[in-house]
């Protein structure tokens, strides 16, 4: 069963690297599988260092769940799906 709440996600990356691409595709896959309604914004810190400063981002990639509250932060290329789901407060479907 997929989540019906609206998810607002921001993904901070550093340039068009393999790791950035990896993170985007991993996130896309998880969202498509687990979420019904979501908005995803990808921000390149090389283009918008000020945004990274405001959000106090150190590591890239960093995924921030802005909605629903509470705020969540997950860092890494999101290859560890279990950790990502844990971070987003989602239970993996197949274990249910």
């Amino acid at each position: 069963m997929a989540e019906k709440e609206t998810y607002q996600l921001k993904l901070y990356i550093t340039g068009h690297t393999h790791r950035s691409a990896q993170a985007i595709s991993n996130l896309q896959r998880i969202c498509d599988q687990e979420l019904v309604d979501y908005e995803l914004l990808v921000i390149d810190v090389l283009e918008h260092p000020g945004l990274a400063e405001d959000e106090k981002i150190l590591a890239t990639p960093t995924l921030i769940r802005e909605l629903p509250p509470p705020l969540r932060r997950i860092i890494g290329d999101l290859s560890n799906t279990e950790k990502v789901l844990l971070g987003l407060d989602l239970k993996p479907i197949r274990s249910k």
Binding site: Y12, T14, G15, R19, Q22, A23, N26, V45, L46, P49, A52, E53, I57, L58, A59, T60, P61, T62, R72, R73, I74, I75, G76, D77, L78, S79, N80, T81, K83, V84, L86, G87
Partner: peptide, 15 residues
């Protein structure tokens, strides 16, 4: 902060 995979401190360096 949850670590889910490889990362670097690119954002810090950029800042």
């Amino acid at each position: 902060q949850i670590e889910a995979g490889d990362f670097d401190l690119g954002a810090l360096l950029a800042r």
